[in-house]
Every structure is written in C-alpha cells, then in structure tokens.
C-alpha cells in the first residue's frame, strides 16, 4: 500500500513540475504582469507584489484562509510523511499553476524556511557520544558524531511536516493581499486595536521604506556612503531623521483623518467575494484525498 502512495506522489510531483514549466513558457509569450507601475526589490515587497498579481486574488479571502488552515492542521494532526508531501505538492500546484506565480520565484521564496528548517533539524538528526553508536558514525578525535536510520527518517518526517505547514501559509500569503487577510482577522473578531494597528503598520511600512530610500539617495549623492566610517555616521543620521519625520508625519496623518470625520475607529468598505461551488468541491476533494492518503498509510 505504501509503495502505491509513494509512486503516486512522485508522479504527481513530476507532472506538476512539467505543467508549471509549460504554463510559464506560455505566459512568457503573453506577458501579463505589466499592469503595475513599479516594482520594489526585497522579499517583503515581492511577496506583497505577487499577492496582488496572483490569479487567485478573485477568490474569497475567507475561503483561502479556511482552506489553508485546514491543510495546515491536516499536516500537523496526521503527522504522516505522505500527507505532508501531498500538502506540499498541492499547495505548490495551487500557488504556481493556478495562481500563476513563476516557479523559480516560488522555489526561491521556499528556500527561506528551508534554510531554517535544515539547521534546526541537524540538531535532531545527529548526536554526540564517546563511543561508536547508531547506524552511521563519524570519528572526530575525542568524540563520535552519530546518527541512525530511525532518527534520519524522523527528521525527514519533521521537515516535510513543517514544510507542508509553511507552504499552506505561503498559499494564503502569496494569493491574498495583506488588507484582505486583515479583513478576515476582523471577521473572526480579533481585537479592534490589533486589526487597526495592522492596517496602519502595513500602509506605513511602504511610506517609511520610501522615505528612507529617498534620504539614503540624498546621502549617497553627497558622498555620505564613501567609506565605512562615513556610512555609519550617515546611517545613524538617517535613522534619527526618520524618527523625527515619522513624528511629524504622524501629526499630518491625524489631521487628515480628523478632516474626514475620524472618530477613533477605522472603517473601510470591504469587498464581499463569493465562493463558487467548484471551489467548495475542490477544497472537499483535496481534504478527502489527504485523509485517504492518511488512512492508506497508517
């Protein structure tokens, strides 16, 4: 039974990579992401940018949040390597093929948690001892570094489980703009204070980055970054200036808010996106598939 599931998963992975690749080729011809004015560098900006460019943006954010949470819980509760692999593949399929995110971008975003996972898991996989033990060991002068087949398998299970959970969250963040995620949080009655703070912080991150960028350019153009010592001084000055500017801007914002009848609560019109029957069916099918895999391999 296990063999069959293994083969199925591998086939799915291969098929998905091929399809993703074909999709990308097709897309390069009719390049469709030119609708945004400009693009920022850096990963925070790019995640935000991909969320806006994703084809899944028209889906209801609530649906996406619930679906990704269910998949995440499946990963953790089933605690089964095949389920985890299936979740990783499923999420990659949804994000890359259905959402239209370039496959290479997805991989490069995935490397961020992978690096952390790898270093975290090394500690679990290996052990130190004074005498040779385990299935594999390495003699390093006074002590042995050893590991066993079981602990390697355990580590692999842990990595896939964590990666499955992370890719579920990635599916949500790479297809849903922050403002919609915040709206979902408001919908589940998260404290108002937190929700409003999130809204404002999200907006101001970009303003702060923009201001900092302009200050830095102005400093660079006046040789403020010509050597290490000057760079340090300029950096400090920009940081302190940023604080002063933020305080001033905060005041201007408050005036602008008050001018539009702000009374202590931020209220916005939120889009109601409906969930289609197809989407519901798709979610049910995926979850039952995961449960089937679990039943078959336990």
């Amino acid at each position: 039974m296990e063999r069959i599931v293994q083969i199925l998963l591998i086939t799915a992975a291969v098929l998905m990579i091929i399809q993703g690749f074909l999709h990308r080729r097709k897309h390069e011809k009719d390049h469709s992401h030119s609708s945004f004015g400009h693009k920022h560098d850096g990963s925070v900006f790019s995640i935000d940018f991909y969320a806006y460019a994703s084809r899944l943006r028209t889906w209801s954010p609530k649906y996406k949040a619930v679906f990704s949470m269910v998949c995440l819980l499946c990963c953790i509760i089933c605690d089964n390597i095949y389920v985890s692999c299936a979740v990783i593949l499923l999420m990659a399929y949804i994000t890359v093929v259905m959402g239209g995110l370039p496959f290479r971008r997805y991989l490069s975003l995935m490397t961020i948690p992978l690096v952390f996972l790898f270093f975290g898991c090394v500690a679990i996989a290996i052990g130190f001892s004074g005498s040779p033990s385990g299935d594999f060991n390495l003699h390093l002068g006074f002590f042995y570094v050893y590991t066993s087949k079981e602990s390697l398998w355990e580590t692999l299970e842990l990595i896939t489980k964590a990666l499955g959970a992370v890719s579920s969250m990635y599916m949500l963040t790479l297809s849903t703009p922050a403002s919609e995620i915040i709206a979902v949080l408001r919908g589940i009655h998260m404290p108002k204070l937190l929700v409003e703070l999130m809204n404002m912080i999200y907006r101001y991150i970009f303003l702060l980055m923009d201001t900092q960028c302009r200050m830095k350019n102005a400093a660079v153009s006046r040789l403020g970054y010509c050597d290490f010592k000057t760079s340090c001084v300029s950096f400090g000055q920009i940081a302190s200036n940023l604080l002063v500017v933020s305080l001033k801007k905060g005041n201007a914002y408050y005036h602008a808010l008050e001018a539009r009848c702000y009374d202590g609560e931020l209220r916005f019109l939120e889009e109601e996106k409906t969930v289609s029957a197809m989407q519901t069916a798709g979610a049910l099918l995926s979850v039952s598939l995961l449960l089937c895999i679990w039943r078959l391999t336990v």
């Binding site: 703009p177 403002s179 907006r203 303003l207 914002y253 602008a256 001018a259 009848c261 209220r267 019109l269």
Partner: peptide
C-alpha cells in the same frame, strides 16, 4: 462633513491599503 480638504501631500492623506477602501473611509465615517 461639509468642508472637505484635499491635502497637499497625498501620501499623508491616504491610509487604507486599496484605492476602494481608501475612498470609502469618509463615507463610512
């Protein structure tokens, strides 16, 4: 309600994270 100001710096007026919710802020209030 009856006197509206368009501020000099648009960036210090815009608070919402989409154009639609930004424009809805006043009417919601």
């Amino acid at each position: 309600k009856n006197v509206g100001i368009v501020f000099q710096d648009a960036d210090s007026q815009i608070i919402a994270s989409t154009v639609q919710s930004e424009v809805s802020f006043g009417p919601m209030n």
